[in-house]
């Protein structure tokens, strides 16, 4: 049997149904998305060719997977919208050497850690202009009115 692959940098969806992590694929870190608790692997064809991957982050229901990818010499922040099968390439200010990111569970905001002019800094971005929110299921409303015929 071959050696078990290292698995790093885990991220859970808000509802706990999805786990993203990084595994070595042909010597390069690539994101692995799995349903929990079955461990079923979910293909991510739009991310092929953009390795190494870094810093995966999932939204509440796992609709969005944000991560850092490599395209040629550039490290990019992308968001895969699994509901629509689209890959959003985020246009962040030039000159940032991206280190990590964190997507808010509702998908409305993104935090990135980036080095600029030799200093690491965290910056926030509002994504609500182009990502639909990925929200948890609604809470049941308390104090429902009595059904007709029942005492209030």
């Amino acid at each position: 049997m071959g050696r078990q692959a290292d698995r790093q940098d885990p991220a859970l969806s808000g509802n706990g149904q999805w786990l993203a992590s990084l595994v070595e694929r042909e010597g390069t870190p690539a994101v692995l998305l799995q349903e929990q608790p079955s461990g079923r692997r979910i293909p991510l064809p739009q991310l092929r060719g953009l390795t190494p991957h870094r810093s995966p982050s999932l939204s509440w229901n796992g609709r969005y997977l944000a991560l850092l990818v490599q395209q040629g010499p550039r490290r990019l922040a992308v968001v895969e919208d699994r509901a629509r099968g689209r890959l959003h390439r985020l246009q962040l200010p030039a000159g940032l050497e991206l280190e990590r990111l964190s997507l808010a569970p509702d998908g409305r905001r993104l935090a990135v850690a980036a080095v600029a002019q030799g200093r690491s800094q965290v910056r926030l971005f509002d994504l609500s202009g182009f990502l639909e929110p990925d929200l948890p299921p609604a809470w049941a409303v308390r104090g429902a009115p009595a059904v007709s015929g029942e005492a209030p």
């Binding site: 962040l92 964190s102 808010a104 690491s120 926030l124 202009g129």
Partner: peptide
């Protein structure tokens, strides 16, 4: 595209170096 949250980013920039963000 993503819109920088200018006020907060300016405030963070004034506070020295940071990393390992977690947004929730």
């Amino acid at each position: 595209g993503p819109m920088p949250m200018q006020g907060l980013n300016r405030s963070l920039a004034e506070q020295g170096s940071q990393g390992e963000p977690s947004l929730s």
